[in-house]
Write a protein that binds this DNA or RNA. Structure first.
Lengths: 349, 349
DNA sequence: CTGTTAGCGCTTTCAT
DNA sequence: ATGAAAGCGCTAACAG
């Protein structure tokens, strides 16, 4: 920030295209052409230099509102996320913003919560043409998708699927879960439990599907008593574990927890109940997070390419916006299992 | 989302003010007046009803770009945050967005990181009049503040202070730290350590100040060997502790850790080194976070009113924007210490 | 190579 | 109580 050159000392009003034009002694359109940066196109080098110099001196910045109005494009993408604390969403947002900025777009992030439900937020974003397109990460509500389509807003579903919808870029939760189950089965566990998030939600359904398929692949029976929902709470996870310990078919020797928080809650409760982890109970988190590595014992967890997810979604959306390319669905395979300390081979005795 | 009434089935183009006017058989200005919702002002109730009905049927939404251009106001506030994963920032953003929406504004959130440094992001936000004002949470860089001032952009410093700057709403980190030290001193500890974030940054400086004042208040000496920086890393926190254990003046019996992550890293390393927490070493986190309650032992931590912080900052900013009220600085006291399991009275022997 | 002109969709005097 | 008209700051034909 060099104070000498770029400060329009006599401030008060931001410089406009017109100001630059008048001082440079050219028409607005010429300045516009230069500012748009059509490098080679029809402006004498000398004029260009002069205009650029004056613009810089005035600290001129095109007014994005006027530009948006004229161009019928805001160069802004919207995203609404449910929980900002969730590390997976943090990664997605970060990579999405980075990818957007790299292509000259801004990312308008909105946080959903009880007071600002996602439907309302999408509408705020989309109404009044605030954004050119949206990344949908919170819901697979077909009505919302239908509305976007009706309003002719470009969108891509990020880690969500909707029936009949192809513009969906997701991470393969079922494969990841299958692999986590395989890991446990490989360690000799035969009674596996699943402490899941809400089974009614997309991720919950996917993980349950993976759990069942993993069990089947290992030739293990599925016991409904060993599946519980916990709404991603630390305490609730413990409650779920406690309830399972007295399952008719016997307690589990290993549990697949929805994410690191759920795994942590499960482990804490196990310990309070006198069960050592991993000796008496193995625990794997179906979704890694910073907490997993900071726990004692450190939690073995499945990792996914969320960074890539955000990047691909943004690029697909912008391609669609600019070249009218169809958004092609993609499914990204899991990165793999970070093996840490919370799983243990079952005593062969 | 009622499909029957609000769908302009024959879509293709969003309805404009003009469309409504033509159908209603009135002038654009009349529609504009009605839509602005000047409840009582000079429009016959009957006309108003008719217009409203047509607007609803067409799904008319004023174009925010055109509105912004005409009104010279975007009704959008900007905020750039350093780390989205930091729970304190999560809380601030959430409450700020909520407060903004409540007053008819949107919050444009930007994430700073190595690739998108904060200065650049502020410029993106402010250049081109994308936002009416900004919440500055990342820096106290006087040059940035000077630039905002020069461009006549309203701003408020959130949890940051800058010399000569009064528009600063902060949480009292020094008092909170003083209290944490008092807690430890009250437990009989006499050799206290501080494992801080970067001492060059605002929060680091504040916490060091609080640490020294707390020590002084308890009549305890300050030993520079018992202060370390760790850049908020889990591993680094452990390294810092390890180094302190061989301090010339003897090892500490209690440590004040910058935040929950640092506290967790400290505890993990202590344990690895054969020290029991809290029996051999007490640890308090100077800043609470979800991790603190999920750790074993659960970490005693200082809490601050971040929700209130975000709300107050947004309201002060909007007041300034709308009524040209001076933004008055505020300092919010800490909420208090959440006493959990990581601190222990020192053996009086 | 550069200037002139006509809007983008909205709000707001100023008339009527 | 309502309408006509003038822009907000910019870009994109179209002329020259």
């Amino acid at each position: 920030m060099n104070d000498s050159s770029d400060a329009p000392a006599r401030s008060g009003r931001a410089a406009r295209l017109d100001d630059v034009a008048v001082i440079a002694g050219v028409a607005k359109s010429t300045v516009s052409r230069v500012m748009s940066g059509e490098a080679t196109l029809s402006v004498r080098a000398e004029t260009r230099q002069r205009i650029l110099a004056i613009a810089a001196e005035l600290g001129y910045q095109p007014d994005s509102r006027a530009r948006a109005l004229r161009l019928r494009r805001t160069h802004t993408l919207g995203i609404v996320v449910p929980e900002i604390d969730n590390p997976a969403f943090g990664t997605i947002i970060r990579s999405a913003q980075k990818a957007a900025v790299a292509r000259g777009y801004s990312l308008f992030i909105s946080l959903a919560d009880k007071d600002q439900p996602d439907g309302e937020l999408y509408r705020r974003l989309v109404a009044g043409s605030r954004v050119d397109g949206v990344l949908v990460t919170t819901t697979s509500d077909p009505a919302l998708v239908a509305e976007l389509r009706r309003r002719a807003i470009s969108y891509v579903l990020v880690n969500r699927e909707s029936p009949g919808e192809t513009a969906s870029i997701i991470v393969d939760y079922v494969d990841g879960t299958v692999r986590a189950v395989a890991h446990l089965a490989g360690l000799g566990h035969r009674r596996l439990a699943l402490i899941s998030g809400p089974l009614g939600q997309y991720t919950g359904r996917k993980r349950l599907e993976g759990f069942r398929r993993g069990l089947a692949a290992a030739g293990l029976p599925f016991d409904p008593d060993l599946v519980a929902e916990c709404n991603y709470g630390w305490e609730e996870a413990g409650d779920a574990l406690a309830a399972m310990l007295s399952a008719p078919g016997g307690p589990p020797t290993a549990v697949c927890a929805a994410n690191a928080v759920v795994a942590s809650g499960t482990i804490a409760r196990a310990r309070r109940l006198g069960l050592a982890v991993p000796d008496d109970l193995s625990v794997v988190a179906l979704l890694d997070g910073p907490l997993a590595a900071m726990s004692a014992p450190a939690i073995t967890a499945m990792q996914y390419p969320f960074e890539e997810l955000g990047r691909l979604a943004v690029n697909a959306l912008i391609d669609n916006l600019e070249d009218d390319t169809e958004v092609a669905g993609r499914t990204l395979p899991p990165l793999g299992l970070a093996e840490r300390e919370s799983t243990y081979a079952i005593d062969p005795l």
